[in-house]
Amino acid sequence: MYVDYVRAYTKAASGSALDRTGWTATTSPVNSTPANMLDGNASTRWTTGTDMVPGQYFIVDMKAAKTFNKLTIDCTGNSKDYARGYQVFVSSDGTNWGSEVASGTGTDPLITISLAPKTARFIKVVQTGTATNWWSVREFNVYN
């Protein structure tokens, strides 16, 4: 008589998005409505309103220190409006940023950035590429 044993494997959860209630965003250039990238509504967005050039950025204030290891920058809906390059910085006070904690090249409208666990209150994403498209962000999420 055979007895088959089946070992079930479960995939570890990839983490959940942090609650963005009360979070605020500031941007450079100042255009559109930065809060749109935190509102949970895929039909709204923040946009630079101008061609992409290195140095454009947004800063998200999570209002308290949070620990996280993944970010997503959702630029869908305007398929060519994603950052061509990016650097990520974190800060506890919104003034002292230190060295980048992640950087890369954007290749499609949903940019997922995995990083070693960080604890910070502020996250700054700097756009480092050049394109004739605007940089537009529908939703920005942080995960733990």
Rank of each mutant, 00 (worst) to 15 (best):
S14A: 14
G15K: 09
G15E: 08
S16D: 14
D19W: 12
W23N: 10
T24W: 00
T24N: 03
A25H: 06
S28H: 11
S32Q: 06
P34T: 08
P34W: 09
A35S: 15
N36P: 06
L38K: 06
A42N: 11
R45P: 00
G49M: 02
G49C: 04
V53Y: 05
G55Q: 06
F58L: 10
F58W: 08
I59K: 08
D61N: 14
M62P: 02
K63S: 13
A64R: 14
K66S: 10
T67Q: 12
N69G: 11
K70T: 03
C75N: 11
T76V: 07
T76C: 03
T76A: 10
G77C: 04
G77A: 03
K80I: 02
K80G: 14
Y82N: 01
A83Y: 03
Y86M: 05
Y86R: 01
Y86T: 04
Q87A: 13
Q87W: 01
V88I: 13
V88N: 07
V90Y: 02
S91R: 09
S91F: 07
S92C: 01
D93M: 11
G94N: 06
T95L: 14
N96W: 03
S99A: 15
S99Y: 01
E100Q: 13
E100V: 05
V101H: 03
A102N: 09
G104C: 06
T105I: 15
T105Y: 02
G106P: 06
T107E: 11
T107L: 08
D108H: 10
P109T: 11
L110W: 03
I111Y: 06
T112V: 15
A116L: 12
P117K: 12
P117D: 12
K118Q: 15
